[in-house]
Structure formats: C-alpha cells, structure tokens
C-alpha cells in the first residue's frame, strides 16, 4: 500500500547573509519544489529571511554526543551506520509528483559515489535559547556520511557540541537569490500579519465595558454570553 503521508523535509533558514543557515523545523511535502514553498510559507512569514534550504530528512546523517560516546565512530562502520539514501523521496518513482516535470533540484541519491563529495556539517552547540538550533558550521570533502563525520569531528570539535548533522550537498535544495524579492522580501512590510497590529484586546475590553454599562442601565442588550 502506498504511504499516504507526505515526506518530511528539514528546513534551514538564514536570517542575514553573514549568519549561518540554521534549522528552523520541518515540513511535509510531496516533492522538493513544494517542500521549498511550504518551508517559505511556514517559516519565512516573518521578516529577516534571506535564504532557505530544504533537505529530505532521510538524507541527513545525525549523531548525538551520547551516541558517539556509546558507539565510537571507529566501530560504527556497519551498514546500519550508513544513511538510507535509497528510499529518499527525491528518488521515488511511484509518487504522483514523479509524473510532474522533474524539479530543478531533483538529484539521484541512489548512487553511492566512490569519489569524495562535499558534505555540510551542522552542529547544535548548546542548550540555551540562542544555541538550540542545529546550525551550519562548515564543509568537508568525504566519500561517505560516516567518513564526513569522522573528518568533522577532527575539524570542528572546538566547541561544546550536542548534536551533529551531516548532509551531502547534493541533497540540499537551495532558494535562489532571485527568489528573494517574491519569496522573502514582502514579509518585511507585512504589518497585518503581526497580531499586534490588530487591536483585538482593547476592542474586546471596550465591548465588555459597553455591555456592562448597558446592563446596569437596564438597556436592551441581548445575545449569548
């Protein structure tokens, strides 16, 4: 039976050109193109988004520090430690979206490259509010996600790290800089999207006091409470 649930994509948002992309949350989508649009609509409604990435969740190789402590990487070179790229949504042929034109971001994740490729390294560096995001810290060139993590452990271990995410660059769907004017910029001026621009609370208070005055005067206020 075909799974009726859409695939999960992790969303990375960049607030300013000089800041790293960091994980904003996830969206469901039938394919990469719609994942990018859903990500935009769910996460870029408020200002300060300059660029967005979406990644099929299955393409992410995640490790927590606890996992690395209990199963050190040297012994983790088993099939289960490899990222499951075979069932990644981008390569699904049985979904309705596969009949749609291939999106520009369509990539073949089924082939396991023997030659090194670029992996992006993400870390969660703390537990306080500013640090709870899994953020992009740099790149390595490696022949597998596992290899990439071992390189990342050497290269990016300076700080306190709670979580590692390793993502092959070819699995990342990136917004184009030309998308910004229609995708991200309009949010800057959208006061009506901010709940603070609707004076609902003062109006409700006015209504309540108007009602009380009328009731005390034996007025003709009727209606449901």
């Amino acid at each position: 039976m075909m799974d009726s649930q859409w695939h999960i994509y992790q969303v990375f948002e960049q607030e300013r050109a000089d800041l790293p992309h960091r994980n904003a949350g996830s969206v469901h989508a039938p394919d990469a193109e719609m994942a990018m649009e859903n990500a935009r609509d769910v996460f870029a409604r408020r200002p300060n988004c300059t660029s967005m990435w979406v990644v099929p969740e299955r393409a992410i190789f995640p490790k927590t520090v606890q996992e690395l402590q209990t199963a050190p990487l040297a012994r983790a070179d088993s099939p289960s430690a490899r990222v499951d790229l075979q069932s990644t949504p981008l390569a699904r042929a049985d979904s309705p979206s596969a009949r749609v034109d291939p999106s520009p971001a369509r990539v073949d994740l089924q082939s396991t490259p023997s030659t090194p490729e670029t992996y992006l390294v993400f870390q969660k560096q703390g537990q306080t509010a500013r640090e709870t995001f899994v953020a992009h810290v740099g790149d390595v060139s490696a022949s597998s996600p596992h290899h990439a993590l071992s390189l990342a452990l050497e290269k990016f271990s300076g700080k306190n790290v709670f979580v590692w995410w390793i993502v092959p660059e070819r699995a990342i769907i990136k917004s184009e800089s030309t998308d910004a004017p229609s995708m991200f910029d309009p949010a800057h001026t959208k006061k009506y999207r901010n709940h603070l621009s609707y004076p609902v609370e003062p109006i409700m208070r006015q209504l309540k006091s108007a009602r009380e005055i009328l009731e005390n005067d034996g007025g003709q206020m009727t209606g449901d409470e």
Partner: peptide, 17 residues
C-alpha cells in the same frame, strides 16, 4: 494538510492586504 493551511491562509491575507 497543515502546511498548505498556512500557505493558503497566507495567500488570503495577501489578497486582503
């Protein structure tokens, strides 16, 4: 679906704007 609920409401709000 939730994501499209938000997206479509965004479009509706845009039209009001």
């Amino acid at each position: 679906i939730l994501e499209e609920d938000i997206a479509f409401a965004n479009l509706a709000l845009d039209e009001l704007g």
